[in-house]
Design a binder for these strands. Structure first.
Lengths: 221, 221, 221, 221
DNA sequence: CATGAATGAGTGTTCATTCAT
DNA sequence: CATGAATGAACACTCATTCAT
C-alpha cells in the first residue's frame, strides 16, 4: 500500500474541519473523520500524532485561504468604503463557500489559557495589523476622523465582521440575526449596505458642536 | 443529612456554570461539578433529572441577573449616549463579576439546529426588542439619524457589546483584544470612551455631500 | 410518631412481595417498596437491617399461608384422587389470589449456593414429607401401585404442581402453557381434569374393557 | 490486535451464558463477562450493540445445540418409551455438559410481559410442536390411550422434563430434588427408570374397578 | 420514632489510541 | 504502509444505605 495521495490528505483535513465545526473538538470522533475521508483510523495516527495534532493541521489548512483573501483586498483597495465593501463581500463569499471553516474558527474562540493566546495571534494577528495600518493611513491622508484611536476602530471593525461571518455560518448567530433583522436577514446586499452605512458614519464623523457639549456633560456623570 | 441550603443550591449552579463555561457541555463532568460544589453526584440527580436539566437550570439562573440589569438601565435612561454608556458600564461590571456566565453564553453560541434557535431566542430575544425599540424611539424623537434601519443598528450595537463582553471573559477574545489594542486594552474607561465615540457618530451621522456622492457611485459597482 | 401499625407492617411485606415478584431481588428498589407501602425508606431500615432482611421477611410471611393450605388438605383427604384434586384446586385458588407470592417463590428458584439449599428446605421440606408420606400410605393400603419409589413419585407429583402454579402466575410459564394448550389453557376445570387423568394413569394406561370401548368412541371425535 | 478468533467469540458467548445464568441479566456485568472471556469491554460492544444484544446472542447460541439434539431424537425414535428414554438421556447429558445453558433458560422464565411471550415462543415453540405431534401420532397408531388431549399430555411431559433439567443444574432445584429423593437423587439411571415408569403408567398403573368407580363419583363433586 | 435527602460505589457505554496483520 | 479490531480509561446515571431533622 502506498502513501496517501494529496487528494486523500486534503480529504482528511476537510473531513476533520467538517467534524470539528459540526460537533466540536471533543465530540468529533476520529473514527467518523476517517470514515468520512474514506480511510482507516490508523492512517490518521500515521500522519498526526493524536487528535489534537489533526485539529491543528485542519486549522492551519483553513487559514491559508482566508489570509490570501484578506491580503489581496488590502493590497488592491485604498479607500475605506471600497475596502470595507470588498472585505465584507469577500467574507460573505468565503462564509458561503467554506461554512465549515468559519464554524471551526468559531469553535476556536472557546479555547482558553496560553493556547487561546497562541490561536488568537495566529488567526487574528494578521488582520489586526492590516486593519490598524489601513485606518492609520486613512487618518494620515485626512480621509478618516482624526480623533479616534486606530487600534480601537480596527477592533470594532473586526468585531462587526466576525459577527457577520458567524451570522452566516453558525446556527446560533444565524438565529440571533433573524431575531434582530427579521426577513431582512436573508439579503446579503442589504446587510452590506446597512453595515457600510454604520461604518461610514462611525469612521468619518465630524463632531458637531452640540454633541461635543453633550459628551462633556456625560463625562461628569 | 439535611436538605440542601439555598447557598448549596447556588453552589451547584455556580459550579455548573463554571464547568460548562470552562469545559463546555460535553466535557464538563457531573462528578467534577459535584466535587466543586462540595456535594455528591447523587444529589445533582435529585435536583436535576439529568445533565442537560442542570445545564438548563444554570443558564436560566444566569439569565435572570442579566435581564434585571438591562431592564433596569432601559427603564432609567432615555438619551442614547447615556443609555449606551450605562449599558456598557453595566456589562463591563457584569463581565468582571460573572465571567463564568459570559463564558457559558459564549459556549452556547456553538449550539446548532433547532436547539440553537431556541437558545438564541431565550437569550437574545429580550435585548433585540429592547435595543430596537430604543433606537426606534430615538429616531422618532429626531435624536438619531433617520436613514438607518433600527433593526440593523440594534444588531450592530449588540454585536459590539457581545464582543466587548467576550473580550473581558474569554481567553481567546481577550488575547485578540490585546492584539488589537495593546496596553490600552486594560483600561475599562478608555474602552468605554472609544466605543461611545464609535457609536455616537455611527448613530448620528449627517451625510456629507462628498461621501453621499461616493456612495452612489459605489452602488453601481 | 408512633410505632408502625400491624397494617403498615403488612403493607411493607405485601409491597415487598409485589416488588420482588415483579422485578426480582436486585431490580426491586427499596424506595419504590417504601413508596408503595406509603412509608419512608428510613422505616424499612428500622425494621429490617438491609434489603436482604426485608426480602427474607417477605418470604416467611408468604410461606405461612401456603403451609396452612397444604396441611389442611393433607389432614382432610385420604384418597389419592380426592387429595390430588383438592391440592390442585387449592393451589389454583392460591395462585389466583396471591400471584405475587407464587412469582416470588419462582424468583427464589434462581438462588444458588448454600442459600439455595436453605431456601429449598424451608419452602419444600414440608411438601416433600407430606407427599411422600401420603403416597407411602397409599401403597401400604394397596391403593397405589407398589413398584414405584414413593419419593420419586412425590417428586414428579410436586414437579407437575409447581409448573401448574407457575403457569398461572408467571408470564413466561403462562405463555408456554398457551403454546401447548391453545385456548384450552384458560379453563381451570379442564386443566384439573386432564392433570388428574395424567396422574391417575399416564401415557400407556392398561385399558380396561370399559375404557377401551371409551377410547374407541373418543377416536371417532 | 487481530480479529477475534472463533474460539474467542465462543468464549464471549460462554462467558455471557455463565454470567447470565449465575447472576441474571441485570446483575451480570459486562466487565465481568469480558474479563472471564479474557477480553476487554470494548470488544463486547464491537460485536454486540449493547448488553441485551449480547444476551440475545447467548440465548440463540445455546438454543441451536438443544434444538439439534431434540430434532435428532425425534427423527430417530418412533415408540414412545424409546423416545422418552432417549429424550431423557439426551437432556441429562446436555444438562451435565451445559449446566450454564440450562441455568440461563431458567432465568428466562422470570421474564415478564410481551418479552416473556416472545421468549417462550422462541424456546418452547419447537418442543411444544414436537411433543404434541409425537403423542398425536402415537394415539393414531393406537399405542397411546385415546382419551387424553395430546396437548395436555405433551405439556405435562415437558413440565417433567424441564423440572428434571433444572434439578440437575439449578442449585435450588438440586436441593429440592435431594429433599425428595435423598441419596437416590444422584443416580441418573435410577431417575431415568422411575420417570419412565411414571410416564408409562402413573400412580395407579393397574386401574382397579374401584378407582374407576371412584373417578365417576369424583366427577359429580 | 419516622422521614427523606445526601452519599458514593458500581454499572453500561463511548471513543482515542495502539498494533498485529 | 494502510487497516481496523482490541484496549481501557472515563463518563452519566442508579440505588442501597445512612443520618440530621
Amino acid at each position: 500500500m502506498k502513501k496517501l495521495t494529496d487528494a486523500q490528505q486534503e480529504a482528511i483535513l476537510e473531513a476533520g474541519i467538517a467534524a470539528f465545526a459540526a460537533q466540536g473538538y471533543h465530540e468529533a470522533s476520529m473514527a467518523a473523520i476517517a470514515r468520512e475521508a474514506g480511510l482507516s483510523v490508523g492512517v490518521l495516527y500515521k500522519y498526526y500524532e493524536n487528535k489534537y495534532a489533526l485539529f491543528d493541521a485542519c486549522l492551519r489548512h483553513s487559514l491559508a485561504a482566508l489570509e490570501a483573501l484578506l491580503q489581496e483586498v488590502t493590497a488592491r483597495e485604498k479607500a475605506l468604503l471600497h475596502y470595507a465593501r470588498e472585505i465584507i463581500r469577500g467574507l460573505q463569499r468565503f462564509a458561503r463557500e467554506h461554512g465549515d471553516h468559519i464554524r471551526m474558527y468559531h469553535r476556536l474562540t472557546t479555547a482558553s489559557g496560553d493556547h487561546a493566546e497562541a490561536l488568537a495571534r495566529g488567526i487574528e494577528g494578521m488582520t489586526a495589523r492590516l486593519y490598524t495600518d489601513f485606518i492609520t493611513r486613512g487618518q494620515q491622508a485626512g480621509d478618516l476622523r482624526g480623533d479616534m484611536d486606530p487600534r480601537f476602530f480596527a477592533f470594532f471593525f473586526d468585531n462587526l465582521l466576525m459577527m457577520l461571518q458567524f451570522s452566516y455560518c453558525c446556527d446560533y448567530y444565524r438565529a440571533r440575526r433573524s431575531l434582530y433583522l427579521g426577513e431582512a436577514a436573508g439579503e446579503d446586499s442589504v446587510v452590506e449596505e446597512e453595515l457600510l452605512k454604520f461604518l461610514e458614519s462611525a469612521f468619518t464623523f465630524e463632531q458637531s458642536a452640540i454633541s461635543h457639549r453633550e459628551r462633556e456633560k456625560e463625562g461628569e456623570t
